[in-house]
């Protein structure tokens, strides 16, 4: 269903938006709780922080950043078309444009997040 339902860019954009949105929501639930521990139990927070700073943690944060950036760019595309329906004709081109921005911003970003794990 994920790849065949209506096919093409519009449906993939929708599927990625939904998957990234649910993933970000899950992280927000965890993140609000871990920040609460800064006041509630600072030692427990510092222990959790070590997980975030580890290599698996950094890979997770890179994926979180990718989900966030995709969701933000595609969301802006949706909002633009909602309030300027004439642009909907170019929804495909807008989606590809959002991927160009995604790669241009995301690849250097991923490098910055991952490099401390490799001692850079």
């Amino acid at each position: 269903m994920l790849l065949r339902y209506r096919g093409s860019e519009g449906m993939l954009a929708w599927a990625f938006h939904r998957i990234s949105g649910v993933a970000i929501w899950l992280f927000v639930v965890v993140h609000v709780v871990d920040i609460y521990l800064v006041g509630g139990d600072p030692k427990a927070y510092d222990t959790i922080l070590k997980v975030y700073a580890s290599l698996p943690g950094r890979i997770g944060e890179t994926l979180l950043g990718a989900a966030l950036l995709y969701h933000a760019l595609n969301g802006l595309r949706i909002i633009t078309m909602d309030f300027w329906p004439a642009l909907t004709v170019y929804h495909r081109q807008l989606w590809y444009a959002s991927w160009i921005v995604f790669l241009a911003v995301g690849l250097p970003g991923a490098f910055l997040i991952l490099k401390p794990a490799f001692g850079l």
């Binding site: 519009g10 449906m11 954009a13 929708w14 938006h17 595609n74 595309r77 949706i78 909002i79 078309m81 909602d82 329906p85 909907t88 929804h91």
Partner: peptide, 9 residues
Amino acid sequence: FYTRSGRVR
């Protein structure tokens, strides 16, 4: 005609 990835208003 419109293809949207957002929810219809």
